[in-house]
């Protein structure tokens, strides 16, 4: 697996981080993932994935935003990096390109 390869869950979570803007932390990502895609994964899995993404350099993190609800503990807020954006772009382009090569597939599937 090449270093800039983006896994399916990684891609989804990267998108969610973009959607959440300034409030992208572990539990929020899990929540929005559930709302948007109906996929339920454990918080541990979310942390595992963002950890991988950070290692690949697609996101960066900072600590902040302690609330009572967290017993005064800070969150790790994630932000997409330039290389993260380009990776997303690349992934979308790749898929669009592929889809364009098989224009009839959707009709076949519908049948």
């Amino acid at each position: 697996m090449s270093k800039d390869h983006l896994g399916e869950l990684e891609e989804l979570i990267l998108l969610m981080i973009v959607m959440l803007k300034d409030d992208a932390y572990g539990l929020a990502i899990r929540r929005i993932l559930k709302d948007q895609t109906n996929r339920v994964i454990t918080i541990g899995a979310v942390h595992g994935t963002v950890n991988r993404l950070e290692k690949k350099g697609y996101i960066e993190s900072s600590m902040g935003g302690a609330t009572d609800l967290r017993g005064g503990r800070r969150k790790r807020i994630f932000k997409i990096t330039a290389s993260g954006k380009s990776a997303l772009q690349k992934s979308r382009d790749l898929k669009v390109n592929l889809w364009q090569q098989i224009p009839d597939l959707s009709i076949d599937v519908a049948k």
Binding site: L27, H47, M63, T67, R70, G71, R73, R74, K75
Partner: peptide, 10 residues
């Protein structure tokens, strides 16, 4: 810290 925070929120 983040893990426990998330857990408490959860």
């Amino acid at each position: 810290e983040e893990i426990l925070g998330d857990l408490e929120e959860y």
